[in-house]
Structure formats: C-alpha cells, structure tokens
Amino acid sequence: MGGLLEGKVAIVTGAGQGVGRAVAEGLATEGAKVVVNDIGVTLTGESENPSAAEEVAAGIRDRGGEAVGNRESVSEPDTALRIVEDAIDSFGRIDLVVNNAGILRDAIFHRMAPDQWQAVIDVHLKGSFLVSRAAAQHFRQQESGAFVHMTSTAGLIGNFGQANYMAAKLGIVGLSRAIAMDMQRFGVRSNCIAPFAWSRMVSSIPTETEADKIRVAKLKQMTPEKIAPMVAFLGSDAAKGVSGQVFAVRNNEVFLMSQPRPVRSLHRGEGWTAAALAEQLPGAFGPSLTPLERSADVFSWDPV
C-alpha cells in the first residue's frame, strides 16, 4: 500500500465499524500505519463485540497494510494516554489523530436525564480532548501533526431530541479551533468534518413521517467510504495550510462550512435600554436571524 500518507502513523477512535472503520481502512490504503481503536460497544454504549478493533486491524494486515487493534476507552485520561502509547510502541511515532468515537442517548430535552447527557459528552467531547491532549506532547516535540475531529450537522445546524449530542458536536468545533490556534506555532493542524453517511449514528433517525422515510432512504445511499479521502487529505502534508476549518462530506460533495461571525450591528451613542432594543432590534435584525432548522432542512437537495 502507498499513497498520500506513506510513512505516517494514524489513530482512529471508534473504528470498529461504520465511518471509523471506513476511515481506518482508507488511511491504510493511503499508506498510513493505523491504530484501530474501539471498545466494541453498541450505539448506546453497552458491550457488544470486544474484538471489533482487532478484526478491522486484521483485515488491514490481510490486505498488506500495517495496523494494530486497541480496546482502550477514550473517556478516561489514563486509557486515552495508552491509546497514544500504543501508536508509539507499535510504530515509533504518531502523525494523525482522528477523533471519531461516539455514542447516542437521544431524548427530548425536558426528558433528558443527567446520565444521558453526561455519557454522550464524556465520549464525544471529553474523549476528543483526552486523546488529542495525549497526542499533543508528541506533536509538539516533533513540530508536526494533524487532528481530524468528527463533528455533525446536528451540532452545526440542529436536530430534534439530541441536546447532548448537539452540545458535544458543537463543542468539538470549539475544541478543534482552540487546538489549531494554540498549536499553530508547532506546525500542528486541527480540522473538523461533519460526515453524511449511513452508520449507527444515523440509523436511529426516526422514520415516523413520509419525509423522514425519504430522508433515511437517501442517507442509506451515502456510504462511509466516501468520508475517508477527506480525512486522508487533511492528515497529509498536502493540507499544510488548512487548519481551524469545518468541512462536511456528503456522498460526492465536499463543503466548507461557515463559522460564527457578526452579520448585523446596531449602535446607539447613549447606550441601550430594554425598551429601545424592543423598538429597534426586531426590525433591524429580524431578516438576519438564524431560523430554527434541522440539518435536513438546510441540506434539502438530493446527494450527488
């Protein structure tokens, strides 16, 4: 195997199946040596297949690549460190971290229990921080490295019944940008991808209406393998000038997503009162207010 990542070492968390597996296999095809991390749990976090990581790694080796399986959790400091140590012990270095691990505990906000909130935050957001932090010391010393974090249009735009997931995924965008800014001087890059692909993360989408059924049918056409090339590019030296950005990949489409910036302003020399704001703000800002849309409302055309 050879390609854009020849000689580089990558960690992919949550790589036992779905998007993570496709990314791990795609990176190996591009020449990377891969640490396939997965604890082998269901979508909601219960134990399912403890050998998932090793099965994916074995498949990569069977095709001529180099890979090891890793079953450590991303959500605890010590185990996150061991994931990175596995890369160093197995391959001598680390060049790319792909934070993909995640679970779901969906519930309408007013019915969401604290443990449902915390479980999702711990894996997605805390896990991304811990694994990134464990790799950061190596990136700093070698003055190179790349992070690719999986966000979601559920966080960037919105979705019903996913306050925990939305908060975690939008938090990952902030984390990625902070890493990009703090580690720029060491030649380290950090970017996000919002993947559109049929996987466990989207298989729980409700199909109660005809519109939802049509949406899910379209999602099933988008395979996880479509995400891997963008991850490989962002992890390669070819993406040297790309950092702190948010992309989306939807079948054969690649998007650069906007990030919050001022869109309108009001100034009042004597300062504002609540009454003055009530009089002027709705008319001035109303046309520019962001509507309460779901991801499906914004990405409303058929994938190409």
Rank of each mutant, 00 (worst) to 15 (best):
G2R: 15
G3Q: 07
L4H: 02
K8Q: 14
K8P: 04
A22Y: 05
G26Y: 15
I39N: 11
G45T: 04
E46K: 15
N49L: 03
S51H: 14
E55Y: 05
A58I: 04
G59R: 08
I60Y: 04
E66L: 14
N70G: 08
D78Y: 07
D78W: 12
L81D: 13
E85F: 13
E85G: 05
D86I: 00
D95F: 03
V97G: 03
A101H: 00
D106H: 11
A107D: 12
I108W: 00
R111T: 05
M112P: 02
P114W: 02
D115G: 05
Q116V: 00
V123I: 12
H124N: 06
L125Y: 14
V131L: 12
S132N: 08
R140A: 10
Q141M: 11
E143S: 03
G145V: 03
A146K: 10
T151R: 07
T153W: 12
F160Y: 12
Q162L: 13
M166T: 12
A168E: 07
L170I: 15
M181Y: 03
M181D: 15
D182M: 02
R185S: 06
C192Q: 07
A194S: 14
M201Y: 03
M201W: 06
V202S: 12
S203L: 05
K213L: 04
I214V: 15
L219N: 09
K220F: 08
K220Q: 15
Q221T: 15
E225M: 04
I227P: 01
M230H: 00
V231S: 03
A232G: 11
G235T: 12
A239V: 09
S243F: 04
S243V: 06
G244E: 14
M257T: 01
R261T: 11
R261I: 13
P262M: 07
A284P: 01
L292N: 08
E293N: 08
D297E: 13
D302C: 00
